[in-house]
Design a protein around this nucleic acid. Structure first.
Length: 908
RNA sequence: GGACGCAUAGCUCAGUUGGCUAGAGCACUUCGUUUACACCGAAGGGGUCCAAGGUUCGAGUCCUUGUGCGUCCACCA
């Protein structure tokens, strides 16, 4: 064995071996110990499912993905070892807008646009790039050691998923949930496309705020930065509390605004800020989202002023055909000329820009498809989507427990978002994605702004029969399809998806076995985008929840706390880290120190640190194998033959098994990793292994073997590769990945139960005391010294382990042990002779006294409190009997403990 | 403007329902190369747990207010 662990020799090889043997499939597990090649789990084994949040096929995986893979793989490997039928479904997301934009940028360099290429050829280009990206992503997942079941891989835009999308769309349409309506969208006049809200970029700039009246007879001065849109005003809104305008509310005026006739109604709206401008807002329903809502509430006429090229539409006299800047200049000029302009003021303004071309966004009304979140439907037991989704997390629904979000505080965010949810716009004017499954009679132009007659629209899974139908050119919001991810991935061909009695049916074994999934592990940044959408889609389509738990991880930031991005050049590539430090170290660096919902800073030093830890583990085994025969048939320990240190380490690993199991059951990955690190280095390597160099125990092979095999099992979910390599040193014919998770037997014999593990601490204390004594007095290392230990009651213990104390880096040549000395009896005292100083205490008398005093005081307080509690009628009446009994028991225990401490104190 | 979060050692962070002397990693100081490991070992220094007030026998932990920082949502007509 080499001095250092060579991960490069092992990782790819082992991954291929696992995959080839089918260990990533749900049938693999520890239940068939005798025949590892014929894996089969009992049918009644509990299923455990995670679906991988599908990475976008826009490029390569970053550290955030790596962290996600590491955490999910820990869960999957742990549950696999628990004997559950474990399934982790891989897949990728077509990420409609992101992918299309990326490809548009590429073809832009060839001086082409998607329009010059045409839909078919453009999509071919997109698909090619998506496929390349997909292959890279799959390779990266494998490098991370992720035990994903590749035989079940899915894609959000493949045929099976498309089938599910079309069916659910149709179901919702038939239920009246999906409707077509107008809404203000962010329109880029240059790209000729709508933009999602998060694709709009804001730029701080100075802008002019113009104060003017529409005409001489109009009573109110309004303020605006965009006079050209005022050609489409149909109202002026004021705050209902505003005394200045109160008496005008409800009145209507006919005005001549720079040569264009307008009808203006004065309306009241609480949204209006009384302190901005004149406190009066010219309402332009067609070109402002807020105004649109006001128009809906007040039943105002909608006049469109600007067209899709950013030009003023027809019928606006001389302004028609001008672009917005020209029109603005003309109107400002006219207002000045006619004396209607009151003043111009410079203000700070945020300009909305297209993130692609920096063109100013034009808010325009456009015909879109929506999902009504407030309509009550029979399919949801007469409730609305909103109500259902709130209930699913608040109290549970469809007979399931409530969906638990970890960390809990995000439940508040979820409720807040869901309560304020508006109808979900699901159509997008891009080509890459699930095309809306709607056809129109060819006599109707679907980009027009009129709503079609009902008989001219066909909604279905396949194209309609007959001539003259033309499909809607729009595609669906990417979250519409990824919202179905937990169940759509469990179908493996389009035939398995159908509608029955107005409900979606997934007719596959996998769906029956694995839905709903156990936990959705994803980033908190997509709680609303994705997690909420999954709850919407699943509760509606299946009348079930998509998942029981949601675990939200944080973002992986660079060491300065900044988001990693290519433009900043601060990206740490997971593949680089794997190449340099190995997958195991990379995984640990992402798990330890990462707590749910909190961002994490990552540096290369951190990864290097964990490489060192992995190497430590390697050397622990190297030592063990070199010095002991560990390939033995059984590791049953004869408790009569073990030494004090053996008992200590057995007790310790047993405790660790319980702790790690508890941590993993409760999503405390970081804590589990830290505890394992502590045990591995501080307890096993630094103490137990050191003692084996000096102690003679007959059972040492079994004890060491028992400790090591359990340690490997506990570490395996975190660092799968090195643990699998080391596992070979033991006499198991089953690979570690499908071995049992360690358990502490309930039927353990009395001797095991009696293991306290604390006595060795006394020896440890003596050794540490001697080391300290030497260090503090700066003894030359070569100087040979003699130690005298006053051991008190522990004299037997110390005597038995004299050799150990001498050997454990104490630098002591000889030891004399005395029962009593010049100091009190209970404590151990160490004296180092042969040098100037004479005596040092292992236990500081002053400190000890203080500690005892404080402990006694605390117990006194506890007793007071408990007595008070028990005498409180309210408490006794309110608390169940068990709690009252518990309090009584505690009171007794406190009393005994207090007495003990008081005795100790007296002796001091 | 609305909501949520964070503030603990020089740095990065743990600290589960209030309860042993507030912990870890890195960094720092001193010592050490004894055949598992220099990708190493031993010992050590360093904290008014942001401030003020409150609840409690007891607060890093719960409540209120303030300060600083961050994130998300809405958005300035």
């Amino acid at each position: 064995m080499d001095k250092s662990y060579n991960f490069k020799e092992n990782e790819d090889r082992i991954y291929q071996n696992w995959e080839r043997k089918g260990f990533f499939q749900p049938k693999a597990g520890p239940s068939r110990a005798d025949n590892p090649d014929n894996l089969k789990l009992e049918k009644d084994a509990k299923p455990y499912t995670i679906v991988l949040p599908p990475p976008n096929v826009t490029g390569t995986l970053h550290m955030g993905h790596a962290g996600m893979l590491a955490i999910e793989d820990v869960l999957i490997r742990y549950h696999r070892m628990q004997g559950e039928r474990t399934l982790w479904v891989p897949g990728t997301d077509h990420a409609a807008i992101a992918t299309q934009t990326k490809v548009e940028k590429i073809i832009e360099e060839e001086d082409k646009t998607r329009h010059t290429l045409g839909r078919k050829e453009f999509l071919a280009r997109v698909n090619k790039i998506a496929r390349e990206s997909h292959d890279t992503i799959v390779g990266q997942c494998k490098k991370m050691g992720a035990s994903l079941d590749w035989s079940r891989e899915a894609y959000t835009l493949d045929e099976t998923r498309n089938r599910a999308v079309n069916f659910v769309f149709k179901l919702m349409y038939d239920d009246g949930l999906i409707y077509r309506g107008e809404r203000i969208v962010n329109w880029c006049p240059r790209c000729h496309s709508t933009l999602a809200d998060d694709e709009v970029e804001y730029k701080e700039q100075k802008a002019k705020l113009y104060y003017f009246k529409y005409d001489k007879n109009f009573p109110i001065i309004i303020a605006t930065t965009r006079p050209e849109t005022k050609l489409g005003d149909t109202a002026v809104a004021v705050n209902p509390k505003d005394e200045r305008y109160k008496n005008l509310i409800g009145k209507e005026f006919e005005v001549d605004f720079v040569g264009v006739a307008l009808k203006i109604k004065i309306i009241a709206d609480r949204e209006v800020d009384m302190d901005f401008g004149t406190g009066a807002l010219g309402v332009t329903p067609a070109h402002s989202a807020i105004d649109w809502v006001m128009a809906e509430n007040n039943d105002l006429e909608i006049i469109k002023v600007i067209n899709e090229d950013g030009l003023i539409k027809n019928n606006f006299s001389k302004y028609s055909g001008k672009n917005v800047e020209e029109a603005r200049a003309m109107i400002v000029k006219n207002l000045n000329k006619s004396g209607l302009m009151e003043k111009e003021e410079e203000i700070d303004n945020k300009l909305s820009l297209c993130y692609r071309c920096d063109t100013a966004i034009e808010p325009l009304p456009s015909l879109q498809w929506f999902i009504d979140v407030n309509r009550k439907v029979e399919h949801l037991n007469g409730k609305s989507i909103k109500e259902t989704c709130l209930e699913a997390v608040r109290s549970g629904i469809f007979g399931r427990d409530k969906i638990k979000i970890v960390p809990e505080r995000f439940e508040k965010n979820y409720f807040h978002w869901m309560e304020n949810l508006r109808d979900w716009c699901i159509s997008r004017q891009i080509w890459f994605g699930h095309q809306v499954p709607v056809w129109y009679k060819s006599t109707v132009n679907n980009s027009q702004l009129t709503i079609n007659k009902k008989e001219d629209i066909y909604v279905g899974v396949e194209a309609p029969e007959g001539e003259g139908w033309k499909r809607d050119e729009d595609t669906l919001d990417t979250w519409f399809s990824s919202g179905m991810w937990t169940f759509s991935t469990l179908a493996h061909s389009p035939d398995e998806i159908r509608i029955e009695n107005g409900k979606l049916v997934i007719d596959s074994e996998d769906f029956k076995n694995f839905h709903p999934i156990e936990v959705l592990e994803t980033g908190y940044d997509i709680l609303f985008f994705w997690v909420a959408r999954m709850i919407i889609m699943t509760t509606y389509a299946l009348n079930d929840i998509p998942f029981q738990d949601v675990y939200l991880h944080g973002l992986v930031l660079d060491e300065k706390g900044k988001k990693m991005s290519k433009s900043k050049g601060n990206v740490i590539d997971p593949l680089d880290m794997i190449e340099k430090y190995g997958t195991d170290a990379t995984r640990l660096s992402l798990i330890i120190g990462s707590t749910p919902g909190n961002d994490m800073r990552l540096s290369e030093e951190k990864v290097a640190g964990f490489r060192n830890l992995v190497n430590k583990l390697w050397n622990i085994y190297r030592y063990g194998i070199k010095n002991y025969e560990l390939r033995i048939k059984n590791y049953e320990i004869d408790f009569d033959k073990i030494s004090l240190v053996d008992a200590w380490i057995i007790k310790s690993i047993d405790d660790v098994i319980l702790e790690i199991t508890d941590c993993l059951e409760n999503y405390k990955f970081s804590q589990a990793g830290e505890r394992l690190r502590e045990f591995t280095r501080d307890e096993l390597a630094d103490w137990y292994l050191e003692t084996t160099k000096f102690q003679k125990s007959k059972e040492i092979e079994k004890v060491l073997g028992y400790t090591l095999i359990n340690l490997l099992r506990l570490w395996h979910p975190f660092i799968p590769f090195i643990t699998e390599v080391l596992w070979k040193n033991f006499s198991f014919n089953k690979q570690l990945i499908i071995s049992e998770w360690p358990k502490i037997e309930k039927t353990a014999d009395d001797k095991r139960k009696a293991l306290k593990g604390v006595k060795f601490e006394i020896i440890k204390n003596a050794i540490i005391a001697i080391r300290n004594a030497r260090a503090e007095n700066k003894v030359e290392p070569s100087r040979k010294v003699k130690a005298i230990i006053y051991a008190g009651d522990n004299i037997g213990l110390i005597k038995e382990n004299k050799a150990l104390i001498k050997g454990m880096r104490t630098g002591i040549e000889s030891i004399e042990i005395k029962e009593s000395g010049p100091k009190p009896e209970k404590a151990i005292f160490v004296a180092v002779e042969g040098i100037e100083i004479y005596l040092l205490g292992a236990v500081d008398e002053k400190k000890e006294k203080k500690r005892l005093k404080e402990s006694i005081e605390r117990l006194r307080q506890l007793i007071t409190m408990t007595k008070k509690k028990l005498s409180d009628k309210n408490f006794v009446e309110r608390a169940p009997g068990a709690i009252v009994d518990k309090e009584k028991t505690r009171l007794e225990e406190f009393g005994i403990e207090k007495k003990k401490l008081e005795d100790q104190f007296k002796k001091l």
